[in-house]
Design a protein around this nucleic acid. Structure first.
Length: 105
DNA sequence: AACCTGACTTCGG
DNA sequence: TCCGAAGCCAGGT
C-alpha cells in the first residue's frame, strides 16, 4: 500500500541530522510535493511530540526561524545553537552550509 | 460544503 | 528589508 505524503514528511524530518537544518519547502519537495510546504507545518504541529521529531531543525526558505519571539523563537534558536549552528547578526543561518540533503535515495 | 487557519514560498513594488 | 498579494495543501469548524 502507499505511504502518505504526511508519512514521508515525518520520515524525512526524522532523518535531519543534528547540526543541520532543512526548510519547509525543501522537505516537501523531497517528499514528492514541491508545493506542500504548509503540510510540513501541519505535520509538525500534529505529531512532533508523538513522533519525536527534531522540529527545531526546520526553518523557512530564507534561512530564518519562522516562529515569533515569545512563541518559540528563542527556544528554537537556542536548540540549534546547542547543535553548533551559527546565526548571523540578522538571525539568519547559512543554508549553503547547514541545509541538509539526503545522501542518495 | 463553504470558510478559516497555519512555524510556507515566490514575486513585485 | 519590509509588506501585500497570490498560490498551495490539509484539517478543523
Amino acid at each position: 500500500m502507499s505511504v502518505s505524503f504526511q508519512q514521508r514528511l515525518i520520515a524525512l524530518i526524522k532523518r535531519i541530522p543534528k547540526g543541520r537544518v532543512a526548510t519547509y519547502g525543501h522537505i516537501a519537495r523531497l517528499a514528492g510535493n514541491p508545493m506542500g510546504a504548509r503540510q510540513v507545518v501541519w505535520a509538525l504541529n500534529s505529531s512532533w511530540e508523538k513522533e519525536k521529531l527534531p522540529w527545531h531543525r526546520v526553518i523557512n526558505s530564507r534561512g530564518r526561524i519562522s516562529l515569533k519571539p515569545g512563541q518559540g523563537f528563542e527556544l528554537q534558536k537556542a536548540l540549534l545553537e546547542d547543535e553548533g549552528i551559527r546565526f548571523d547578526i540578522n538571525d539568519t543561518v547559512d543554508l549553503d552550509r547547514y541545509l541538509w540533503a539526503p545522501r542518495k535515495a
